[in-house]
């Protein structure tokens, strides 16, 4: 326990009350150092610049089986969804009056698909897919949206090169007050 008495006596031995207090503040460094290598199994963040992707690869042809086993119950046989929130294909940002916004029509980055499926899907057993299965199944979702060929081997490098139809559709508002 920190008592006022201790604080005051600490201040008395130091040159001034101010330096005594700053010594107390510096003592409040309680974080334990850790290395990035110790976080490899913990950090799931995958960014558009290619950082954060695990090794592995897969094609849409392989992903079809994963999708049919692990995703269709909620997302439908062809990604048409079981409600508006789980539709994974279709939509057109320009032609529709109220555009249906999906991975295919709306998402600006393919990296988000990897990042999200790896961290959150399938919703009934998140983080249960291997890295290969994630590459495979997202290749299939991209293929269902006619964004890639079903033979393309998706991996860290090829994923970075996938261009999403709505890639220029967003305005960064992060600095607006």
């Amino acid at each position: 326990m920190f008592t006022l008495k201790k604080l005051l006596s600490a201040a008395a031995v130091s040159a001034s009350l101010a330096t005594g207090l700053s010594a107390v503040v510096q003592a409040q460094s309680l974080g334990t150092p850790i290395n990035e290598s110790q976080l490899q199994g913990f950090d799931l963040i995958a960014q558009p610049d290619g950082s954060g992707y695990p090794a592995g690869s897969g094609t849409a042809m392989q992903g079809k089986a994963v999708f049919e086993r692990r995703c269709v119950a909620c997302h439908g046989m062809n990604g048409e969804g079981t409600n508006a929130n789980t539709r994974l294909v279709g939509g057109d940002m320009q032609s529709e009056e109220r555009p249906i916004r999906t991975v295919g029509s709306y998402w600006p980055h393919a990296s988000t698909l990897f990042d999200y499926v790896q961290r959150a899907m399938p919703a009934d057993a998140p983080k249960s897919l291997t890295s290969d299965e994630v590459y495979q199944v997202i290749a299939y979702v991209l293929h269902l949206n006619s964004i890639i060929e079903d033979s393309l081997v998706l991996n860290k490098e090829t994923l970075m090169q996938v261009e999403m139809p709505n890639k220029d559709g967003f305005i960064d508002n992060s600095q607006a007050l």
Binding site: W107, P108, Y116, F170
Partner: peptide
């Protein structure tokens, strides 16, 4: 995690973004 760029998580691209009448979408509308 501190980075140079945002991650563009699903919940700041697919959701929690604001599509305007001109079909451009405002991102990071905090």
């Amino acid at each position: 995690k501190l980075t140079r760029e945002p991650t563009h998580f699903r919940d700041e691209t697919s959701k929690y973004t604001d599509t305007q009448l001109d079909r451009k979408s405002q991102q990071f509308t905090f």
